[in-house]
């Protein structure tokens, strides 16, 4: 006696979902590219419970590493070079490691004043809980 197998497996790939997957990947790439501006710098920002939100656009960004190296436009430079290449602007964000010497930051502030910058933001990490100055 011969028993026939009659069930069939439908192997069609649902193309309807492909558009969704492509859309999700696109969103992921947009978000990840906008959040990682300086992937090579590992800065440990100081904590503060007094903070404002930094605007995402129109800022000139200066980074200072714990070794007191200044990074501007993804290039390491000294203060003399920074003076010559600093673009004019209104607001600047300084993202410096908490172990950076403040005298370097002070020199950058003086430079910003010379270049008629109006607002300066010191990037900090949010501190939760009660005020505790270290």
């Amino acid at each position: 006696m011969k028993i026939e197998k009659q069930y069939k497996i439908n192997i069609i790939v649902p193309f309807v979902t492909m558009a969704d997957i492509a859309f999700l990947l696109l969103i992921f790439l947009i978000i990840s590219s906008s959040t990682q501006k300086t992937p090579l710098l590992k800065l440990s920002l100081p904590e503060s419970n007094q903070f404002d939100r930094i605007k995402k656009t129109g800022n000139v960004e200066i980074f200072v590493t714990p070794d007191n190296e200044v990074v501007y436009n993804k290039k390491k430079c000294d203060l003399g070079e920074l003076r010559s290449i600093l673009l004019p602007g209104k607001q600047c964000v300084i993202s410096a490691d908490k172990e950076t010497d403040f005298k370097i930051i002070y020199k950058i502030i003086e430079l910003l004043k010379e270049n008629n910058y109006e607002n300066l933001s010191f990037a900090v990490k949010r501190q939760t809980g009660v005020f505790s100055g270290k």
């Binding site: 008629n116 109006e118 300066l120 949010r126």
Partner: peptide, 20 residues
């Protein structure tokens, strides 16, 4: 993604610089 994007928002202490 929208919710996590808000968590990534940068914070800082903002000061007004004196005029030159």
């Amino acid at each position: 993604f929208i919710v996590t994007a808000i968590f990534f928002e940068r914070t800082g202490i903002i000061f007004k610089l004196p005029e030159k």
